[in-house]
C-alpha cells in the first residue's frame, strides 16, 4: 500500500497566499481602509493599522463607529469566502498557476449585520477574527470580534447573515 507524498510546504503556502491575496486585493474599499489579512493555516486575522482619518470623534479621540463596523464586515465576508473556497483550493479546482488569472466566485452578499459597540475604539491598530457559525448552501451566519490591546477584551463584536453566491452566476 502506498500513500501519496505530502506536497512540499512552499507549494502549499504559495497556493494559499495567492488565493487569499486575490480574495482581498480586488476589493477597493478594503484598500481604502488599509485592512490586510494574516494567515496561520486556515485561520485569518484582519489587521487595521491606525490612521488619523479613521477617527470619528476628535475630542475623545475614538475610532469612527463606521470604521469598526466596516472592519467587522470585511473580516466576516472575507473569512466566509475563504472557508467556502478552502476545499476547491486544496483539491486544485482553483487554478493558481498565474495569480493574476485566479478566477474566484462572487463574494457572499450581506443580508443583515448587527454590531455591538462594547467600548470605544482607541486611536491605535485594531484586529479582528470571524467564525462561520453556520455554513449552508443558501445562507451563512458569521460571528466576529475586534480587539486592540487585549484579545480578551474585544471593543466590538458582530453577527451577520450572508447570502451565498450560486456557482453558475
Amino acid at each position: 500500500m502506498s500513500r501519496r507524498r505530502p506536497e512540499p510546504v512552499q507549494v502549499v503556502k504559495q497556493r494559499r497566499d495567492a488565493v487569499l491575496k486575490a480574495l482581498v486585493e480586488h476589493i477597493p474599499y478594503v484598500r481604502f481602509l488599509g485592512i490586510s489579512f494574516e494567515r496561520r493555516g486556515d485561520e485569518l486575522t484582519a489587521i487595521l493599522p491606525f490612521r488619523e482619518d479613521h477617527i470619528g470623534n476628535p475630542l475623545l479621540p475614538a475610532l469612527h463607529g463606521g470604521v469598526t463596523a466596516a472592519l467587522l464586515e470585511v473580516t466576516s465576508n472575507v473569512s466566509l469566502s475563504w472557508s467556502s473556497l478552502w476545499d476547491d483550493m486544496e483539491s486544485g479546482v482553483i487554478n493558481v498557476t498565474d495569480p493574476a488569472e485566479i478566477d474566484l466566485p462572487r463574494m457572499p452578499k450581506t443580508i443583515d449585520f448587527t454590531i455591538d459597540y462594547l467600548r470605544s475604539g482607541l486611536p491605535r491598530d485594531a484586529y479582528a477574527r470571524a467564525v462561520v457559525t453556520r455554513s449552508g448552501r443558501r445562507y451563512a451566519s458569521v460571528r466576529a470580534e475586534a480587539w486592540q490591546d487585549r484579545s480578551d477584551r474585544p471593543f466590538a463584536q458582530s453577527n451577520g447573515h450572508f447570502l451565498m453566491p450560486t456557482r453558475d452566476e
Binding site: 477597493p28 474599499y29 481602509l33 470604521v67 463596523a69 470585511v74 462572487r106 449585520f113 454590531i115
Partner: peptide, 23 residues
C-alpha cells in the same frame, strides 16, 4: 470608486453604507 465592494459591478461595499448610516 474607493468605496466599491465588487469591482465587477461597481456596487458600493456594505461597510461604506454602514459608515454613513452610523454617522
Amino acid at each position: 470608486d474607493r468605496f466599491v465592494g465588487d469591482p465587477d459591478t461597481g456596487v458600493l461595499h456594505g461597510g461604506a453604507i454602514s459608515a454613513v448610516v452610523d454617522t
